[in-house]
């Protein structure tokens, strides 16, 4: 029984961390219509930023200042936001494809830096030994893991509540207005470019916070943790859960991460050994098919966006025509 609880606590922690990242993406894509193709870059920036500030000293590389956890946490978020600000400034003025491609490129470029700048990031070996927060307070690993789960869930709830308020506030309505019809929003005197940049930076900072929690949990970060597949996983969670709906985003995170891990679990249990060797590609094909199938048959996701319609008008189709 303890084993099952222990595993579920572990699963819940990872899923909650991912859910925070999905919420950040939801602010960008679900509420503002910005396609972030480089989620992994901002996630990695948060993780590396925290590690550099809070990690253990290593004579061979820069950073590792062993600063307190709160400073490391804030530093990670700041680095993610900084990268987002620079990228956003360059690309947000342009048509949406550019943002998708440029952010995808940022992820590739940052991964190259993490992999090659050994003096800064430890290179491909990564960095290890991040002091796990409040570990001294707990006697055994099991209780600590439960406490850490509670900590992550608290942050998840805080982010969720904060975003829900934001979305319902006048500010959130302006963001959606820009997404739906930018020209109309502009004509009402809204500075669409600046608002989009703000949403992009804020969303990326939230994704960065997820990265910080990730490195706090594993105490280890390497370039492998910012592979493009992470971007895909986070996106899959949002699309399946329902873009524009924060509850959907969290649901999607738990569902997809659950499917991702349990498909490996089930294949290992029930597939014959000869097939087990092929489970990797099969798993990818299955997940890819779920995404495509979802977009084909239920593009609004499991929990669709709930918009308080104040006026009837063109909804989804207008979304892109204005941006093209």
């Amino acid at each position: 029984m303890i084993g099952i609880i222990s595993y579920l606590a572990f699963f819940g922690t990872v899923a909650s961390i991912l859910a925070i990242a999905v919420l950040g993406l939801n602010l960008q894509w679900g509420n503002t219509g910005l396609f972030n193709g480089g989620v992994a870059a901002f996630f990695g920036a948060g993780a590396y930023g925290a590690m550099m500030l809070g990690g253990p000293a290593d004579p061979l590389q820069f950073g590792a200042f062993e600063l307190p956890y709160t400073i490391a946490f804030a530093g990670g978020i700041f680095l993610a936001a900084l990268v987002a600000w620079a990228v956003g400034l360059l690309t947000l003025r342009l048509r949406h494809d550019y943002l998708a491609i440029a952010t995808f490129g940022v992820a590739v470029a940052l991964e190259a830096v993490a992999r090659n700048a050994e003096w800064l990031t430890g290179g491909a070996k990564g960095m290890r030994g991040f002091p796990r927060p409040f570990e001294g307070l707990f006697e055994d690993q099991f209780t600590y893991n439960l406490a850490f789960l509670a900590f992550v869930v608290l942050i998840l709830i805080a982010v969720y509540v904060g975003l829900e308020r934001l979305v319902r506030s006048p500010y959130g309505r302006v963001l959606r207005a820009i997404r739906e019809d930018e020209i109309a929003a502009r004509s009402l005197g809204k500075n669409a470019t600046r608002l989009r940049l703000e949403a992009f930076v804020l969303g990326s900072a939230i994704i960065g916070a997820a990265g910080v929690l990730y490195v706090s949990f594993y105490a280890f970060i390497s370039p492998q943790d910012m592979a493009p597949i992470l971007t895909f996983q986070i996106w899959a969670m949002l699309i399946v859960g329902g873009a524009g709906n924060n509850r959907g985003a969290v649901l999607g995170a738990f569902l997809i991460w659950g499917a991702w891990t349990s498909s490996g679990f089930l294949l290992a249990k029930f597939a014959p050994t000869a097939v087990q060797i092929y489970t990797g590609p099969i798993q990818y094909i299955m997940i890819g098919s779920v995404i495509v199938g979802m977009l084909l048959w239920r593009p609004q996701g499991l929990l669709p966006e709930r918009i308080e319609r104040t006026k009837t008008g063109n909804e989804a189709p207008g979304k892109t025509a204005s941006q093209g």
Partner: peptide, 8 residues
């Protein structure tokens, strides 16, 4: 759906 769903 819209074009950005296509991207994904």
């Amino acid at each position: 759906a819209d074009a950005l769903s296509m991207v994904f």
